[in-house]
């Protein structure tokens, strides 16, 4: 057996191996650590009463933490491989979809965990709606601008949603400003998430060359 063969070893489970390599190349482990950091930050913010009520200011703080989590999901879409990866088979869209879903679930889940047994402005349900919606915006930005700049989408949307919170906008498109029971807001967030994941899965983040 050659040295290379030894290095490769015998791996029977190709699927998990591929998923692991794909997630590693997207720096998903680092992303998960940062999502855990977001959860800790949320916990600290709740503990220190940075969000004492359901007011606009409290929800703005929560929204910013949600934005950080969504940015991690969006930026993780960036691929280091470029065209050599794009010229491969149909497993890639599935992997992209899985990575997006996994990270979004991790983002929403970690924040929900961070807020466990505490009162979250707007309610924990709102958190589960807002994070995937923001992640969807980030993934759309990744498809349009490239993975590296994908964070600008959630950030710009957050600024808009902050204004919507302060000004009491009623449109469901600024879903973080709507109460958790607003069905329209749920639909809009779901649509943004579906569009983002579908775009990134099918097309991948925009190839921006060396700067991508």
């Amino acid at each position: 057996m050659t040295g290379t063969a030894l290095a490769v070893g015998r791996r029977r489970h190709a699927g998990p191996r591929l998923v692991r390599l794909h997630l590693t190349s997207r720096q998903v482990p680092g992303g998960l650590a940062l999502l855990a950091g977001c959860a800790v930050l949320l916990r600290v913010a709740l503990h220190l009463h940075w969000m004492p009520d359901d007011g606009a200011a409290a929800r703005q703080t929560l929204l910013l933490i949600e934005c950080a989590a969504a940015s991690v999901v969006a930026v993780a879409a960036r691929t280091p491989f470029g065209e050599s990866e794009r010229a491969t088979g149909p497993r890639l869209p599935v992997l992209r979809l899985a990575a997006s879903l996994l990270l979004t679930a991790a983002a929403a889940g970690s924040l929900a965990l961070g807020a466990a047994a505490a009162r979250v402005p707007g309610g924990a349900l709102g958190l589960l709606r807002d994070v995937p919606g923001l992640a969807g915006i980030g993934l759309i930005a990744a498809a349009a601008l490239g993975g590296a700049l994908a964070w600008t989408g959630p950030l710009a949307y957050t600024v808009l949603a902050e204004l919507a919170l302060m000004d009491g906008w009623r449109t469901p498109w600024t879903w973080p400003a709507r109460p958790a029971h607003d069905a329209g807001a749920w639909w809009c967030a779901a649509l943004a998430f579906a569009a983002g994941t579908a775009l990134v899965a099918a097309r991948g983040p925009r190839d921006t060359g060396g700067d991508g």
């Binding site: 490769v8 070893g9 015998r10 190709a14 497993r91």
Partner: peptide, 17 residues
């Protein structure tokens, strides 16, 4: 190399070799 082998849908048993 393995990552690309798997992306190209090679049969898993053949990948290490």
């Amino acid at each position: 190399v393995e990552y690309f082998a798997l992306l190209k849908e090679m049969p898993p048993r053949e990948v290490p070799r």
